[in-house]
């Protein structure tokens, strides 16, 4: 009888004691967590795309709440998310320009000459292992096996006829495709930029003529005719100065190779 009594007594006392200590400790060792963190997390797109440069949406929300990150970094959420976050954080919303992915290559099948007939694994990196770093004769060309399309979480990237194309209505500018491209040709351009030469070839004109039906030959026509002096040909390739360009589209009209894209 005594043993039973002691058993019950000892265990209940120990239980009560530990319970009390834990309850007390939870008050003493209480750590404040910022309620804004959860609120910021609510505003984000939640794709964990990493476009903000932080490890996932939670990491970014934490950095924003700690005041370490600006509120406009969520590319997938766009300006709406930035505005909401700015409201939560009580800071001015200086929305960054939305960026979109762009593939500077127009060398689809039949336009850019093939170096060899590739029938290996459907992966740009695999195709790069063969001679010349590309299955096309142009070393600057999009291989077109869709590493970028597979990296895109927003269904904005598709390979059409051997060249990756960006669906500008779906692209959020997270840059996953830029990371995925083994040839480093995909890049981000501001959404407002309507004009871009869709070629990355820096070979001399005569060489380009041989290997691609549309590639930039560096003829300087766009440079001469641009009313805003925004185009310069550097290394045999037309380049647009984003600050000077007035988006008139004249260059796209006059380009003899029709290589300058105009997203009108």
């Amino acid at each position: 009888m005594k043993t039973i009594l002691f058993s019950i007594l000892v265990l209940s006392v120990m239980g009560a004691l530990f319970g009390a200590v834990l309850a007390f400790a939870s008050k003493i060792f209480h750590v404040e967590t910022d309620p804004r963190e959860a609120a910021v997390r609510e505003c984000l797109a939640g794709a964990n795309c990493g476009g903000c440069g932080y490890p996932g949406c939670d990491g970014y929300a934490k950095a924003v709440a700690a005041g370490e990150a600006p509120c406009n970094k969520c590319v997938a959420g766009g300006p709406e998310a930035a505005a909401k976050i700015a409201e939560i954080m009580g800071v001015a919303n200086d929305t960054a320009e939305k960026m979109l992915a762009f593939v500077p290559c127009s060398g689809s099948a039949g336009i850019a000459e093939a170096r060899f007939n590739y029938s290996g694994p459907v992966d740009c990196r695999a195709a790069m292992l063969f001679g010349g770093k590309s299955s096309k004769l142009c070393t600057f060309a999009c291989i077109g096996l869709g590493n970028c399309a597979r990296a895109c979480q927003f269904d904005a990237m598709h390979v059409e006829n051997g060249v990756a194309k960006v669906d500008r209505s779906k692209c959020v500018g997270c840059g996953a495709c830029v990371e995925a491209c083994p040839k480093n040709i995909v890049r981000l351009i501001p959404e407002s930029q309507k004009i871009m030469p869709a070629c990355g070839n820096r070979d001399k004109g005569a060489q380009v003529m041989k290997i691609c039906k549309v590639g930039c030959i560096g003829c300087m026509k766009c440079q001469r005719e641009c009313p805003a002096d925004a185009i310069t040909v550097v290394n045999n390739l037309a380049q647009v100065d984003l600050d000077k360009c007035v988006q008139c589209g004249h260059c796209a009209d006059i380009c003899p190779r029709h290589i300058i894209d105009y997203f009108g």
Binding site: L11, M14, G15, F18, G19, V21, L22, A25, S26, F29
Partner: peptide, 15 residues
């Protein structure tokens, strides 16, 4: 009982 409460306590203390 001791281990369970100890781990809880240590966790709070470290945090």
């Amino acid at each position: 009982l001791v281990i369970a409460s100890l781990v809880q306590f240590v966790e709070m203390f470290l945090k």
